[in-house]
Amino acid sequence: MNYFIQQLINGLTLGSIYGLIAIGYTMVYGIIGMINFAHGDVFMVGAFVSLITVIIFGITGTTNIALGIGALILVAAISMIIAGVYGWTIERLAYRPLRGSFRLAPLITAIGVSIFLQNFVQATQGARVKPLNAIISGGFTILEGNDFVVRITYMQILIVVLTFLLMSGFTYLISKTSLGRAQRACEQDMKMAMLLGIDVNTTISTTFIIGAALASVAGLMYLLYYGVIDFYIGFSAGIKAFTAAVLGGVGSLPGAMLGGLVIGLIEVFFAAYFSSEYKDVAAFSMLIVVLIFMPQGLLGRPEIEKV
């Protein structure tokens, strides 16, 4: 039982990271209907920017949690800005010129950007993994059984709480502000939105910037949680986050979060109880099963075929 609870905590932590990346996929898909394949690599760039910033500020392990969190907020801010610039640039250069053109063209450019980013970071930062010492260490012991001790680290609390805060903030943003209304209008009918005076380009750019910024926060969390990154982390995290977005229902922010948590939990539990080598197979199989029985995803709107 204790082992189970420990896995639950680990799964929720990992799921939060996936969920944050998935938001970027789901928002972009919702608004322009394309799979932004480069998003996973923006997450990776975010992790690298975070790493560099952490070293520049000389943030090392501290037990003063307040100081640690303060420093990390600064790191997150810088990383979000730079990742945002990446998100904006990618959309501007590789997707916008193809808007309204052949449907598969932006998909191919997205894959191209993804390959480019991976290899650009590899060429400039080297192929070796980058380790980082734990910045926030320590945690609580929640349950103490005779065979197994359940611990939750400060880092895990930070990840889950921060994800929850960001998630609530952005759900508010999407549902209540004019940006959110503009986004939903573009989602429904881009031409009509344009005719009604909505600046479609700005709305889409903003969507990319927000998605990239959230992904970079996920990148920072990944860096802190695992303590090691390389240029290739974007691929598998990206695929799983996209899986999470589809699982939750493409276009739905809470769906992305829920999908992320489900994927995180499946991965962790499968690794803990069955086989860690096949944990990805479990996650992907789950996706296939869910899509067959609930083609719209867990929280997506069912689509009625118009004849």
Binding site: L93, A94, P97, L98, S101, F102, A105, P106, I108, T109, I111, G112, V113, S114, I115, F116, L117, Q118, N119, F120, Q122, A123
Partner: peptide, 20 residues
């Protein structure tokens, strides 16, 4: 080492040049 980097770049440029 730059082979894949150029490959990614070529993919983007060619699609921009000829979307269909």
């Amino acid at each position: 080492q730059l082979r894949l980097l150029l490959f990614g770049l070529a993919m983007v440029l060619m699609m921009l040049w000829r979307p269909r």
